[in-house]
């Protein structure tokens, strides 16, 4: 964190802390919830950024992990409210436990998907991650017990010990703490020897191999951690919306998470945060202005890829370390 980028990161962090509080004091409940949405989407992108930005693994299937997190929250709340059990286990509405299960389950699934997908490279990796996500997507659609295509509502938001999660600003606080924790974790990982190895696996595999480290294991570990963060975002997203549906796992969603990473700036710690702010605000305000916002989003995105390769962070803070 140095120079101009450091200042921008600081400004983003300050904005995440101050703006929603101001909105809360002004009584703008809607905008506080919008801020929660920004933070959650940013968290999902922070997860993907670890795999895509730092590890060079272009996963086109991260929506699968987002959806897994969402469905853990949804299914858990569903059984707890109906008083029924899941495969004989009683479920919970406690967020910390739900997060733990989401993250672990996503980790196990990512381990399986990664173990197969990471045998491939480049385009094959993009496509096979897409295919696995589609598989889970179709499973969620066709499996009727939890609503299938209709989705699964969460009628009462899950709880957090000692906090009132219904209060929008409190829920925002929970989300923003989760985001900061994952940003901190990412920074620590990338600052560690593991991070250096991941960097190396991305840039020069042979050098890593000569150092006696298997790139496959490094990549797989990063892929799993990345999936876990995105799953945590999914669980929070489900509680924010009070609803989970297979659309959380659709390939459009994978594309959107990827777009946020790129829009913000690939491989920049705070890039996903900048990307999420830009994306959600564009979606909300362009969507309010015109029915054809997809057209404008497409043009903006195309412009970013063609002419502003570093994304927002690249534009404001200059080139990233690696370029």
């Amino acid at each position: 964190m140095r120079g101009r980028e450091g200042w921008i990161n600081g400004a983003l962090a300050a904005a995440l802390l101050i703006v929603p509080l101001a909105l809360h004091l002004a009584g703008e409940v809607y905008y506080v919830n919008l801020a929660s949405r920004v933070v959650i989407v940013a968290l999902a992108a922070v997860g993907l950024n670890l795999a895509l930005g730092y590890g060079g693994m272009v996963s086109f299937g991260h929506a699968a992990f987002f959806g897994i997190g969402g469905y853990v929250a949804g299914i858990s709340a569903h059984h707890a409210i109906l008083g029924t059990s899941f495969l004989g286990l009683s479920t919970t509405t406690e967020m910390p436990l739900i997060w733990l299960i989401s993250v672990l389950l996503a980790g196990v699934v990512a381990l399986a998907i990664g173990a197969i997908s990471l045998r491939t490279k480049g385009v094959y990796f993009i496509m096979i991650t897409l295919a696995f996500a589609q598989m889970l997507y179709y499973f969620a659609i066709s499996f009727p017990a939890y609503g299938g295509e209709d989705g699964l509502p969460i009628y009462v938001r899950n709880t957090f010990p000692g906090l009132n999660t219904f209060d929008p600003i409190t829920f925002y606080g929970i989300c923003v703490v989760a985001l900061f924790a994952c940003l901190f974790l990412t920074a620590r990982i990338m600052g560690s020897r593991f991070g250096a190895a991941l960097d190396m696996a991305h840039l020069s595999e042979t050098r890593l191999a000569t150092a006696g480290i298997a790139p496959f294991n490094i990549r797989l570990t990063a892929f799993v951690i990345s999936a876990m963060m995105t799953a945590l975002a999914g669980a929070l997203f489900a509680d924010l919306n009070g609803f989970v549906s297979p659309s959380m796992m659709s390939w459009h969603r994978s594309g959107e998470i990827m777009v946020i990473v790129i829009l913000g700036g690939v491989g920049r710690l705070w890039g996903p945060v900048a990307g999420a702010i830009a994306f959600v605000l564009l979606e909300t305000f362009l969507g309010g202005l015109t029915e054809r916002w997809g057209l404008f989003l497409g043009l903006i995105l195309l412009g970013t890829v063609l002419f502003a390769r570093g994304g927002i962070m690249g534009l404001i803070a200059g080139k990233a370390r690696h370029d």
Binding site: L52, M258, V266, G294, L297, G298, T304, V305, L306
Partner: peptide, 29 residues
């Protein structure tokens, strides 16, 4: 558009063509 992407990595190609989908769908509508 596409010709500017040949020298780019797959990530840029995926994104730019994803953007083209949005533009084409909305334009056709």
């Amino acid at each position: 558009v596409i010709r500017r992407l040949y020298a780019r990595d797959h990530l840029d190609q995926v994104l730019a063509t994803f953007a083209l989908i949005l533009i084409f769908s909305e334009g056709t509508r």
